[in-house]
């Protein structure tokens, strides 16, 4: 009896020791995780933090090497100047039109295409899918000039049509990615849902609009959010097709120094753009997306998993 008790006690002590050791290694590993993540996170955010701090500095603080992170006085003047230089109101509306509408059009056309490829066994499917991937691999630069000449011929240069039309026909920015997202989604959801609708006498289009589209919310979220952001940030095609007339925020930011000079040329003290103003301009130009992201961050981050983009 006594012996058994002693052994049991010993065992308990041993268990406790093992548990303590486990706990210790767990604490150590989670500490290491935090250190690494915070370290990498700092490098990630460094340019952004730098931008926020320096955009608030006055000229005196900017040239003072003693002041690095904490400005003596907060100077919102930079922002009002940057606001005028960017022509913020107009540029914001332009950006919104040039990204919101293509994002909706692109999501819709990719949904239709993904549905066609996933739900119907049609001859030539493999060929079309291969061509779709091929389009993704060919740099947009190759198609840029011919598309420009084509839109020019139909008088669509300097309108938003070059942004809308390819999106409407599934050839927009990275359309292939979104078609694959929809393809994966429609390949995995149960076919019985469609079939029961057919039995009730619904047509193909009714089934697509009433059954398939409402079910595909996770795919819509991915497709819309990413299209929107990518269209917003796209400048190469936008500046060639309509950039001289319809200026979006990133395009205005690209020519920030020049616009600043022409605006404030008369005033000697502002004759060249200072770092603080140009950083304030950068901050202003990404502000809409930043707010958009902060509101929808959960959808952004979780949408990729939910859409089944990873396949099986």
């Amino acid at each position: 009896m006594y012996n058994v008790d002693r052994i049991r006690k010993k065992g308990n002590v041993k268990n406790l020791a093992v548990r303590l050791a486990n706990n210790k290694s767990q604490i150590a590993s989670s500490l290491a995780r935090y250190v690494i993540l915070i370290g990498i996170g700092f490098v990630f955010l460094y340019p952004v933090l730098y931008m926020v701090v320096n955009s608030l500095k006055s000229v005196e603080d900017l040239v003072d090497p003693a002041i690095e992170w904490l400005p003596r006085s907060i100077c919102f003047d930079n922002f009002s100047k940057a606001f005028v230089t960017l022509n913020f109101g107009t540029a914001f509306v332009n950006s919104l039109l040039a990204s919101l509408i293509p994002a909706v059009l692109q999501s819709f056309s990719c949904a239709v295409t993904g549905y066609a490829l996933a739900r119907f066994s049609i001859p030539g499917k493999k060929l079309w899918m291969a061509l779709m991937v091929a389009v993704f691999i060919i740099p947009s630069q190759i198609m840029l000039i011919p598309r420009y000449l084509m839109f020019n011929q139909y008088g669509m240069v300097n309108t938003l049509m070059p942004q809308f039309l390819p999106a409407l026909f599934g050839q927009g920015l990275k359309s292939s990615v979104f078609i694959l997202v929809y393809f994966n989604f429609f390949s995995t959801y149960p076919k019985s849902l469609d079939e029961s609708a057919y039995l009730e006498g619904a047509g193909r289009l009714t089934v697509f609009f009433k059954v398939a589209l409402p079910l595909a919310v996770p795919a819509h979220v991915v497709s819309f959010l990413f299209s929107f952001v990518w269209y917003w940030n796209e400048t190469t095609q936008a500046s060639l097709m309509f950039g001289s007339v319809i200026k979006t925020l990133p395009i205005k930011l690209g020519s920030f120094a020049d616009s600043y000079k022409s605006l404030y040329a008369a005033d000697v003290s502002f004759s060249s753009v200072n770092e603080a103003v140009s950083l304030a301009g950068t901050l202003l130009s990404i502000l809409p997306l930043l707010i958009f992201y902060l509101i929808l961050q959960k959808q952004f981050v979780e949408s990729i998993e939910k859409s089944g983009i990873t396949g099986e």
Partner: peptide, 21 residues
């Protein structure tokens, strides 16, 4: 029906991708 759904993409592919290429 399948090709009906694929049609927009097909048009787009020939007009906005293959022809430019």
């Amino acid at each position: 029906a399948g090709y009906m759904f694929l049609l927009p993409w097909l048009i787009g592919f020939f007009v906005f991708s293959l022809y430019p290429i």
